[in-house]
Structure formats: structure tokens, C-alpha cells
Design a binder for these strands. Structure first.
Lengths: 192, 192
DNA sequence: TATTTGACTAATAAACAAAAATGGTCAAAA
DNA sequence: TTTTGACCATTTTTGTTTATTAGTCAAATA
């Protein structure tokens, strides 16, 4: 990626996270990056596509961080699950542009992001499934039903917490209890 | 409650649930109930207070239904938890006016409802705590930490699901997995 | 006395037009 | 190949008028 493109993307991310998608103008981004608006459109074909790239870069960073966890094959699978969930919430808490996509008032407008989000969902489901399978193979976990379905439900649970944590501003208050709740979930699937 | 007041309340509930708080006028409610607007204001001092009463009546019905469950002292506490959670979601799914209070765009306007919601939260936390305590006393459940904190976390989890289920219209799709997830949670706190 | 009524008013929202801001284009320049 | 900024079409904002609605009240009714 060219330095100009990189610079535009970084500036766009900062500005979007400060004012949100609608309150941020392409002029403003170009001006902040000290580039002409034409350059912005040379590298990103539309405002929507630009925002898409911004969210994508946040999710790429999240994937990177989460990969470090499930790639640690020596860890106990229960520890991996715990670390995965904690890290997920920690990184999401600073992924301001992703958080904007959670707002219900934007659902109808964010169709151009649906594939990005569902791709991320699938990726996460895969990773969690891998950890669970590894745990079962090592006889650390006991999962009577379909493992993929469990992975999906864990993801539903994590995504269900996103609104109270990030939109209702209860992150600080609730995150301290989060680890306890993970404890229950992991105990629920632990082989005794 | 007088027949007129009851009639006005029922009509208000139907109209609010059909058009929402803002798109419903007091004239409309009075007309639908075949009463003068003055009567409406004689029984309910403002539109906000009227809506409050409507939501309160939905939550009263929910409390009534949930009470039937935790008052069944013969049931295994794990079954009680399962039944409680399932019934909660089932009744909430038809509590249309309560659902409107979930919309983020209304958070700032619904201050007059905050106490109603937080009172309900406290009530639920109490009931869940009671079931958990009963389970521990009977040695059906094993909860190493503070039981009230567990109850609170379960409630956070349930409330976290409200937005995806009721606002994103994913009730039908997700509710089928819900019972499985409860299974993990209850196993996690079961005494083996 | 307790309740109901509907005309009435003040406040709010809808409708509309003019002005400003913004997304997106393009020919020229680097 | 990349960058620029003037330019255009569309959307958003602003200011004004009109219509609707929340809430009141004196009189009527039960």
C-alpha cells in the first residue's frame, strides 16, 4: 500500500472514529491528511468503500491478536477460550469504527458492510471450533452435541454482550464480571 | 381500576404497540376508546405517564408468569433456571411496548422509564438469586463465588440478547439455539 | 362529589423553499 | 501513475409557515 493511501486510510479511521460515519465529510478527511479530495477518490472509490476499508483494518487487527491465542497449541484449551474471549472484548473496546456498525439506527444503511461482518463471524466460528475440537481431542472438554453449534452459540453470546458493553458504555463496570461468566461457560463444557 | 380507566389503558397499549410512542397521539387513543381526551387526562396525567403505565402492565404480566416458575419449589433448580429463561424470552417477545424502550435512539427520552426498568432488573436479580440459593442449599448447584454476582451476570446475558432477538428480528432464528446455551450455563453451575 | 366532555391554547412537528455543505467527477499538471 | 482543485449534482441544513398534538379548563353529567 502506497504511503499516500496508507496516510489517507489512517486519517479516515481517526476522523470516522471521532465524528462517526455521517458526521465525517470526505473534504474533512482529505484536508486532515493534507491531500486533495481527488487523491482520496483515486485510492478509494466511494465514502462507503473507504469506511469499509477502515472497519476491515480494525477487524484485521483483531484477527491478528486472536490468532496469537489459538495458535498457542501448548495452552490448556480452557485457558485458550478464556484468553480468546477476554482479548476479543479488549480489542473490540478500542475498535471504535466497528462499534458504530452495531448501532441499530444504521442497520439499513450498512448493507455494504454485511459481508465484512458475516465473514468475520465465520472466521471466529472457525477459530472457536478449532479450540473446542482440540480440547475434546485432548480430553479437556466434553461436548455432547455438535461442536460447531456450540461455537456458534458462544459467538452469539459474545455478540450479545457487544451492545451493553460498547454502546451503553458499561464496559468498565461489566468487564470485571466478564471473566467470572467465562468461568461458568468453560466449566459447563469441561470434562470433569 | 374503573372500567373507563381500564379501557383507556388497554386501548393505549394496543395503539402504542401498533404505531410506537411517538407516532401515537392522545387524540387517537381517546377516539379509539370512544372517550373524550379530557377523560384520558383525568386518569393519566401525561402521555409519558400513560406509556409508563402501559409498560408497567406488560412487566407485571411478565412477573406474574415468572413467579409461577420460581414458586414451584418441587422442581429441580436447574429446571427452574431453564424454565425461567425460556419463559422470560417467550413473554418478552410479545411485550411490544417494552421492546420499544430498548431502541438506542430513545435512550435519552426514556428517562421517565428508567426507574421502572431498574426496578424490574432488581426484581429479576432477586428471583434468580433465590433459585440459585435454593439449588445450592439442595446441593444441586455449585457456585464458588458470590451468588448475587452470578445472578447479575445471568441477567446481563439475558438482557444482552434482547436487542438481537427483538430489535434485529432474529427471534425465530436464534431461539432454537437458546435452550442449548442455557444447557451449557446450567451445567457450568451444576454440582456433579 | 367524582367523572366526562369538547372547545381552547401553547408547544411541537410537518411541510416547504432557499442556502449551504457534501459526495463524486474530470481535465490538466506533476 | 499519481495528484490536484475547480466544478457539478445531490443531499443536508436552515429558516419560515402551516398543521398537528399535548395538555387545560369551565361547563355538563352521573
Amino acid at each position: 500500500m502506497s504511503p499516500t493511501k496508507q496516510r489517507l486510510l489512517t486519517t479516515a479511521s481517526k476522523t470516522f472514529s471521532k465524528y462517526g460515519f455521517y458526521k465525517t465529510s470526505m473534504d474533512e478527511i482529505a484536508k486532515s491528511a493534507r491531500k486533495a479530495k481527488g487523491s482520496l477518490y483515486y485510492h478509494f472509490s466511494s465514502k462507503e468503500l473507504l469506511f469499509r476499508e477502515v472497519v476491515l483494518s480494525e477487524l484485521d487487527f483483531l484477527k491478528e491478536q486472536l490468532s496469537l491465542i489459538f495458535e498457542d497449541h501448548n495452552a490448556d484449551s480452557r485457558d485458550s477460550i478464556r484468553a480468546y474471549m477476554n482479548k476479543r472484548m479488549e480489542v473490540m473496546n478500542i475498535s471504535i469504527n466497528y462499534q458504530e456498525t452495531l448501532r441499530p439506527e444504521f442497520y439499513e444503511f450498512y448493507e455494504f458492510l454485511n459481508d465484512v461482518i458475516s465473514e468475520m463471524d465465520q472466521w471466529e466460528k472457525q477459530q472457536i471450533t478449532k479450540i473446542l475440537n482440540r480440547g475434546v481431542a485432548r480430553e479437556e472438554l466434553e461436548l455432547p452435541g455438535n461442536i460447531e453449534v456450540y461455537a456458534e452459540m458462544l459467538l452469539i453470546f459474545l455478540k450479545g454482550l457487544e451492545t451493553p458493553l460498547f454502546l451503553k458504555g458499561q464496559y468498565e463496570r461489566l468487564i470485571s464480571n466478564f471473566d467470572n461468566l467465562i468461568g461458568i461457560l468453560t466449566k459447563g463444557i469441561s470434562k470433569v
